[in-house]
Write a protein that binds this DNA or RNA. Structure first.
Length: 278
DNA sequence: ATTCCAACCTGATAGC
DNA sequence: TGCTATCAGGTTGGAA
């Protein structure tokens, strides 16, 4: 589910619900699966902390907490994996809810639910965040994509596809399978095209298209395919605007050619063979 | 050094 | 109906 637009839409909706509120109680479901830290320890540490802000780095959310007399943050890092959900509405928790945070003056707890358990939760002291391996290796946010960095990384790979490059979070962070396919369609580039063979002009176009597609998706609340929901439990609507993702065998909206489904960069890939050229 | 691939999990769906 | 195989929005670590 969650790529940059879903994570960002979630962040935007979540912030007003819990900003400046204090954790009264934190409860974790089980032992260690998604926790890079011991869950009991994490819960103990969060109790009494006030949420100051939520940042985002690529597909990661960073919940910035402060204790009453502290001048530095504790940062709760959350990655939603494939099926992670963050929501706060009238909900009866099931076995897939792995973290519950009760906030002061909030009508409902904040739930972290994750069926496949690919999500990640970890608590860091502010000063340890930047040296964390997961965070340190992320490239700039994909909303800030620019020709120069895209071209530099394209050149340094011998055989990597342009889709593989877009999915590499160390080049730019935030693009996943859906938005790689959608962006490459909008840019008229074949997903399997070798990154290094693309002209500067086409890369420039791509660097402009990606942020545009991502921003449009954020406006629509992201794409809800199977699991993704916004914090109030409602779905995003960008899946209605998908041009190629999930449309294998159907007609291209632009030219009526049948959308092809293939494998590129080890991921299910969708493209129009007429509109997208190598 | 780059690229590939299995592994981490559960559930939905398709096919027999 | 029910069993089995396949596939899914992501990331990692180790093999090739």
């Amino acid at each position: 589910m969650p790529e940059l637009p879903e994570v960002e839409a979630c962040r935007q909706k979540l912030l007003p619900l819990i900003r400046s509120k204090t954790v009264l109680k934190a409860k974790a479901s089980q032992k260690n699966y998604a926790f890079l830290d011991a869950p009991q320890k994490l819960c103990r540490a969060l109790k009494g902390q006030t949420l100051e802000d939520i940042d985002r780095r690529g597909k990661y959310l960073l919940f910035k907490f402060k204790a009453v007399n502290s001048s530095f943050y504790e940062v709760l890092l959350i990655h939603l994996g494939m099926t992670g959900q963050l929501f706060s509405y009238d909900y009866k928790p099931d076995q897939h809810v792995h973290l519950t945070l009760n906030f002061s003056e909030a009508p409902f707890p904040l739930y972290f639910r994750d069926v496949r358990k690919f999500g990640k939760l970890a608590l860091f002291a502010e000063q340890d965040l930047e040296t964390n391996q997961r965070i340190a290796k992320l490239g700039p946010d994909a909303l800030e994509m620019e020709l120069e960095r895209l071209r530099d990384f394209s050149k340094r790979h011998k055989t990597l596809s342009i889709k593989g490059l877009l999915l590499d979070q160390s080049v730019y962070a935030g693009v996943g399978n859906i938005y790689a396919d959608e962006s490459l369609f909008m840019a008229g580039i074949h997903p399997a095209a070798k990154a290094r063979t693309l002209s500067t002009q086409r890369l420039k176009n791509l660097a402009q298209v990606v942020p545009k597609v991502l921003k449009q998706a954020i406006k629509q609340g992201g794409s809800s395919i199977n699991d993704y929901i916004l914090p109030d439990g409602s779905p995003g609507y960008f899946q209605r605007e998908h041009q190629v993702y999930g449309r294998g065998g159907q007609e291209c909206f632009r030219c009526k050619t049948s959308i092809q489904r293939t494998t590129v960069a080890q991921r299910g890939t969708h493209h129009c063979p007429n509109c997208q050229k190598k």
